[in-house]
Amino acid sequence: MYTVSGGTVKERFPHRWSSCGSYVLESMPFYHVYPGSQCLAIGTAGCNFRCRYCSNAYIAKEDPEIQQDRMYRLTPRELVGMARKFNCRSIVFNVNEPAVSLPSLLEVAEEAKAAAIPMGCLTNGYTTVESTELLASIFSFFNISLKGISDDFNRAYIGIESSGPVLRTIRRLAQDRHVEVTTPIIQGANDNAIDAIADFLVEIDPEIPWHVLRLLPEDEMKDVEYPNIQAIDAALESARKKLPYIYFHNFISSEWVNTLCPDCGYAVIERFSLGCGGDQLKRLLCKDSRCPDCGREIKLLREQACLGNSKRVSQ
């Protein structure tokens, strides 16, 4: 988060991290980046949204100042060194919104680039054009949370006026970065937006991986019923005809976490779902990014694209 000092916007708590641990990329979730690899997952504190169902309110909504005694204090160099010690192939910012910690992340990116470690992030995409470019300069792969389309939903549940900036960010980053999109479903609130979101993604790139999550409501909505799995699965039927890489998860043993070849339906990547950030790779059957059955190219972020921090490779 930021403060204004002497007419300059400054980061309040640089190089302070609320979380830092080694995880598999699937658990972030990233399903089309380095399958099965470890990443160093980091986060800071604070957020520019006020989601009523926030899963990490104790980090995202609590004043960062009172979190300081539990924060990790690691310089960007130490952070990158830690990624190496844990044999992590990448560094992923998750937990809260990276746009609230851009100066620190720019420094980490510099160190990470020198160490040839690519960075990715989870973001809500609610950024200015300028901030989006900064994010694009730091990260080579993104999972952008598109929580809903309608203004009513965004005002009532997220605390923003419109999803317009988020849609703009997805459009921009999908041009030359690897982008996956996540939508947590709240039954009766945004499940009616499934088809509209699918149409939006098709317009940008039908091969964008889309994670539809069964929301586990927390924070202000802790007592709300869990969404019905069969109902959401049924609501996704139409979208599945347009988008080949739709995943429906965030619950134990989901059956909708495998990557199927868009042409022949062969399961080219199989995963386990343990729910709530516990997804794992089961089998990778397209190591050369091609379906072993029909030979079709499967969208996967490749090593050189990440390391170069440049163009997305959609194969």
């Binding site: 586990l216 343990l274 729910g275 950030g277």
Partner: peptide, 9 residues
């Protein structure tokens, strides 16, 4: 089946 206090069932 809970993970980090999140109730999965």
């Amino acid at each position: 089946f809970a993970r980090n206090l999140y109730n999965q069932g």
